Amino acid sequence: MSVRLDIAFFASSLVSSYWNGAATYYRGMVKALNDLGHRITFFEPDAYERQSHRDMPDPEWASVVVYRPTLDDVHRSLSRAARADLVIKASGVGVFDEVLEREVLSLKRPGTQVIFWDVDAPATLERVRRNPQDPFRPLIPKYDLVLTYGGGLPVVERYRALGARDCVPIYNALDPATHHPVAPRPRFRSQLSFLGNRLPDREARVEEYFLKAARLFPGGDFLLAGSGWGDKELPPNVRYLGHLGTAEHNAFNCSAGAVLNICRDSMAENGFSPATRVFEAAGAGACIITDCWTGIEQFFAPGREILVADSGEAVARLLGELTRERCAAIGVNAYHRVSAQHTYAHRARQFEEILGIARDKAPALAGVAP
């Protein structure tokens, strides 16, 4: 008989993508786990104005508990989570992370596992390396398992060296019911579009791969979306949209000649860390240009399913060479690859395999090519 788990999940936010790049990852994983019969209670703090910038109502496939950013409410949420079969603490909740990382471990008991799910493993590992007194460091061996959403073998080896019982990456993926081809919109038309919040460890790469490319290709039409870029000096051929809710991501990806992916510094240096938006764009059938990072070929075939650039000059050169027909072909190839191998249905099955959950007979993955 297949196991159905009650899962308590502490993370930044399921219902708001506002300053919360991991939102679509959480949504994809939680929804796919619910589809397999697991029951998820998602605990998120009322912080960083996320609740006033929701881009979805409470979903049918999870119970969302929004708690006040106070120590009392944190402990009340932990008490409620004590009834779960599995407790997950994600990195970067943003409120009382040290308390949660310590206190979720008190919920371990026979039949209940506690997992740390790191959605920014390179940054976490670098922080712990720089500070041997980091309070998270001695807690790592106490978790039953560490999951990450990227990083590959380098991250696995570093976590194991810190005493983790095991570390397994569960990569970003596509929810084909959420991200898919739609009709283009004039508002989002461009030759090259980039979507990403302004972050300190991403800005220099945005300047190199996007803004520099725009300056080198002055006849092109460039579109920038994401929070925090309002006071950034932009080339005249770059139009800025501001924060873009997830409901508009499909139209954004389907309206551009090409969509640019730019990794954060730590992700690019470590490799094996495809961003959620790569899979979203592929699911929309977009032609993706990405900056260089180790492990790209594990997910997409360079030159056939994705284009790779090592500089702003390379991005500008690609834009000068691309035809509408080639963009369309690359987008179609990426769509078929992501649908066949990289959906959250695949990732949820991987999650069950990691936990040793057996299924009597696994149903066919809905919407996924054989």
Rank of each mutant, 00 (worst) to 15 (best):
Leu153Pro: 02
Glu203Phe: 15
Arg109Ile: 06
Glu208Ile: 09
Leu174Ile: 08
Pro186Lys: 11
Glu126Cys: 02
Gly220Phe: 07
Ser91Val: 08
Ala173Lys: 06
Leu192Tyr: 00
Gly152Tyr: 05
Arg130Phe: 04
Ala81Phe: 02
Thr148Leu: 07
Ser106Ala: 15
Val99Met: 09
Ala161Leu: 11
Tyr143Phe: 14
Pro176Met: 11
Val87Pro: 01
Asp144Cys: 02
Asn197Leu: 02
Glu157Ala: 14
Leu211Asn: 05
Gly219Arg: 14
Gly94Ala: 11
Lys89Arg: 15
Leu211Ile: 08
Leu105Met: 12
Arg83Lys: 15
Glu126Gly: 00
Val128Cys: 07
Asp144Asn: 11
Arg198Asp: 07
Glu208Asn: 06
Phe96Ile: 00
Val155Asp: 01
Leu100Pro: 01
Ala214Ile: 10
Ile88Phe: 12
Cys167Met: 01
Arg83Trp: 06
Glu98Phe: 13
His180Pro: 00
Pro218Ala: 14
Asp166Lys: 10
Ala84Asp: 04
Pro132Phe: 10
Gly196Asn: 05
Gln133Phe: 10
Thr178Asn: 03
Val93Asn: 12
Glu126Tyr: 05
Tyr149Gly: 03
Leu139Asp: 04
Val99Ala: 13
Leu147Met: 10
Leu100Trp: 01
Arg130Pro: 01
Ile170Trp: 04
Gly152Glu: 06
Glu207Arg: 15
Gly151Thr: 06
Pro122Glu: 10
Tyr143Cys: 01
Gln191Glu: 15
Arg83Leu: 07
Gly163Pro: 00
Val155Pro: 01
Arg189Thr: 14
Ala161Lys: 14
Arg158Ile: 03
Val206His: 02
Arg198His: 13
Gln113Asn: 08
Ile88Asp: 03
Thr178Pro: 01
Phe116Arg: 10
Pro138Gly: 03
Arg109Met: 03
Leu147Glu: 09
Pro138Val: 03
Ile140Glu: 02
Asp118Lys: 04
